[in-house]
């Protein structure tokens, strides 16, 4: 008889303990649902901003008419992040937009352009060109990546090489166009 009573008391204690645990568990779940549960849960949209700056110090337009061999025109520009505390990347393409170009075909690859660059202080990528024939049509002439806060400085030079040969064919030929910098979206990790 005593054994039965002891068993009943033991069962009661276990039962009450289980009840307590169940109540605590259920209460916790209830609070969790009231805090984080949302029947109308919608997507979380995080928008990050990247703001670059492109500065063409002496304009973008290149007009070369009646160009003399050995004559070169220079354009300077910078591409940078605007925020000195920036840590992200900005990729960009440098474009030569050609409106009219009769010089390339007449110059026997002596109508060339170059791009000198500096400023990749955080290990960013710079575009470089070294006396490459100017394309007849618009094209991307270089690509760069700004790492964090960097100011990429460029010096673009375009002109006709002076060679020890007859360059009369280039007489009267023209080049007209402009430079532009286009930022490109990095979809990785989006």
């Amino acid at each position: 008889m005593d054994d039965g009573k002891t068993q009943t008391i033991l069962l009661s204690i276990i039962g009450i303990a289980t009840l307590l645990v169940a109540i605590i568990g259920a209460t916790f779940a209830w609070f969790s649902i009231t805090v984080t549960g949302n029947e109308n849960a919608s997507d979380i949209v995080i928008t990050s901003n990247n703001l670059g700056q492109v500065s063409f110090t002496d304009g973008t337009v290149i007009d070369l008419g009646a160009i003399m061999p050995g004559t070169f025109t220079t354009k300077t520009f910078t591409v940078s992040q605007t925020d000195p505390s920036a840590t992200g990347k900005i990729s960009y393409n440098i474009m030569l937009n050609v409106k009219e170009n009769t010089l390339t075909s007449a110059s026997k690859n002596e109508f060339v352009h170059s791009l000198k660059s500096s400023g990749n202080t955080n290990g960013g990528t710079l575009a470089v060109l070294d006396k490459t024939p100017v394309p007849e049509k618009s094209m991307i002439i270089g690509s760069g990546v700004i790492e964090g806060y960097e100011v990429h400085s460029y010096e673009y030079t375009i002109g006709l090489n002076n060679i020890d040969a007859n360059q009369n064919e280039a007489q009267g030929k023209v080049f007209s166009g402009y430079l532009s910098v286009v930022l490109t979206e990095d979809k990785i990790g989006k």
Partner: peptide, 16 residues
């Protein structure tokens, strides 16, 4: 709630 959409705005200020 795990559907997190990460948009990024890529803007540039250009001086000519």
């Amino acid at each position: 709630n795990k559907n997190i959409i990460h948009n990024s705005v890529l803007m540039a200020l250009t001086f000519n």
